[in-house]
């Protein structure tokens, strides 16, 4: 189908974009890469009065080293993140995940700000922001504020962004160089949204797990952290029994849906298998690095 009619405004700075959002009084939509918004417009699932294009705002696409954290501009395309040396070095888990996001032509256009704001429950970047404890910088006419990733994803396609808000920066606290990591995903076809995915980052101390974070997606209305499972393994000696208890906790925590692509039972089974694999890989990597 074709999009419904709307007005169009190409903003040349953040202030102009948020002013236009405010003027539209909740009826305006930012367009970044358009890779999620345009399909919704073509299906007429949305009828904004005005599209506010942020593609012509200079300096919104960057990956910057800033001491304790990496700062990422909202208009940074998936392709840039995928090929960034800084990301590959600081967050190998994010680097790996980017390879699973859609296809080249979509990655050329789609942006991190768009992916986080769209908040598809099976999208990689929302899950990564949760795993990496991202801080999301948001600006509106009322000023600027920081939202922690854990407070950002409220439901499928629903975030803590309010009318008039623009996501203006993503800040990722750096990890230790020795931190182990793994990203596991199953999708029907390469580049499709995931049926389920698990990502792990882990620090070890001898035979012990000193710190662990587990992120999941495709198995709930939002990406999730497996908090209970994290607590089970933290401070434990890594063992088959400890991994089994962690996997049980993960399967108990998820509430997957049945849809055209997979049943809830299958997704619950799958997320456990993916967790097993991810835990083993992350453990291995953290041990190798600390040796």
């Amino acid at each position: 189908m074709k999009p419904p009619p709307f007005d169009y405004f190409a903003a040349d700075c953040i202030e102009a974009a948020i002013q236009a959002l405010a003027d539209a009084g909740g009826d305006g939509k930012i367009i970044a890469g358009g890779q999620s918004l345009m399909p919704m417009l073509n299906f007429r699932l949305l009828r904004p009065s005005i599209l506010i294009d942020i593609n012509r705002i200079p300096d919104l696409a960057y990956v910057r080293d800033d001491g304790d954290e990496i700062r990422i501009g909202p208009l940074t395309r998936h392709r840039i993140l995928e090929t960034s040396d800084l990301i590959a070095k600081q967050f190998p888990v994010l680097h790996e995940a980017m390879g699973y996001v859609a296809h080249l032509a979509i990655r050329n256009r789609g942006t991190i700000g768009g992916s986080l704001s769209h908040a598809d429950p099976a999208a990689e970047l929302p899950m990564m922001s949760l795993l990496l404890d991202a801080r999301l910088e948001v600006q509106s006419n009322a000023g600027r504020r920081t939202i922690e990733a854990r407070d950002f994803f409220l439901g499928a396609l629903t975030t803590a962004l309010e009318d008039g808000d623009m996501l203006v920066e993503v800040r990722l606290p750096k990890l230790r160089e020795e931190t182990g990591w793994a990203f596991e995903e199953v999708a029907r076809r390469s580049g499709d949204f995931a049926l389920a995915s698990v990502a792990v980052i882990m620090d070890s101390d001898g035979d012990w797990v000193s710190d662990i974070r587990i992120g999941m997606m495709g198995v709930g209305e939002t990406p999730m952290r497996a908090t209970e499972a994290e607590n089970i393994l933290t401070g434990q000696r890594y063992s088959e029994a400890a991994v089994a208890a962690t996997v049980d906790a993960i399967r108990a925590a998820v509430e997957p849906n049945t849809d055209l692509h997979a049943s809830a039972d299958y997704r619950r089974h799958l997320v456990g298998i993916l967790a097993q694999q991810a835990l083993a890989k992350a453990w291995d990597r953290s041990r190798r690095a600390s040796r």
Partner: peptide
């Protein structure tokens, strides 16, 4: 498909492949 899935409409925009059905 007009929603980015089939790839039939792919063109190059400033040198990069892109879905022409997802561009205004």
């Amino acid at each position: 498909c007009e929603h980015g899935v089939c790839g039939a409409c792919t063109v190059l925009v400033n040198g990069d492949s892109a879905r022409s059905c997802l561009f205004l």
